[in-house]
């Protein structure tokens, strides 16, 4: 696991209590957003389950025994969703996709990579893509990848081929 650069707020106990002052709260949520994205990027985590989130060190600092309560986590996730960095998986909003790159960003990164490496007009499997070393999209969740590729499809730059056995994409 990559080294996480914890911000100073992570050791600041009130960081784990949602602040009543709206302005302070905004600062707090901004800090939370970048912390969650940093954490997910370093750990290649693409899905957060609100019910289990307190098991993850990001929302639970054992050293100072502070936990962000579930309503706080939900608030952070909704903030992330507002900037296109998260999306609920279901209506109950218990499981969330986390996009440390927004889908648009990811889509253009993948397309640029495909162009640069001569993958246009060929079919790549999802497995191939996620196992490409040292790319923004290496090790990414296949569901997130699919969402990003769907974005490309909308722009007419790719065609997603979904089958029960194997998923692939053709770049244009």
């Amino acid at each position: 696991m990559a080294e996480i650069n914890w911000p100073w707020q992570y050791n600041f106990p009130p960081f784990f209590t949602i602040q009543p002052n709206k302005e302070t709260q905004k600062l707090q949520l901004d800090a939370w957003k970048s912390l969650v994205l940093d954490y997910c990027r370093s750990t290649k985590q693409c899905v957060i389950d609100v019910r289990e989130a307190n098991n993850s060190p990001v929302f639970h600092n054992a050293a100072i025994s502070r936990k962000l309560p579930p309503e706080g986590i939900l608030l952070v996730l909704e903030e992330l969703a507002a900037s296109g960095n998260a999306e609920p998986l279901d209506k109950t909003k218990t499981r969330w996709f986390i996009f440390w790159r927004t889908l648009q960003e990811l889509a253009s990164i993948i397309h640029t990579w495909a162009k640069d490496n001569g993958f246009t007009n060929t079919v790549c499997t999802f497995y191939e893509l996620t196992n490409t070393p040292d790319q923004e999209f290496s090790g990414i969740d296949e569901d997130v990848l699919q969402k990003a590729l769907k974005e490309l499809e909308k722009q007419g730059k790719a065609e997603v081929i979904l089958s029960p056995e194997i998923n692939g994409v053709k770049f244009f």
Partner: peptide, 21 residues
């Protein structure tokens, strides 16, 4: 002090604690 943005409140100890960044 919380209202003025000078202090943050922490409710996860025995009683509310006010912290100054």
């Amino acid at each position: 002090m919380v209202q003025d943005g000078l202090a943050w409140v922490d409710t996860q100890s025995d009683e509310p604690t006010y912290w100054l960044p």
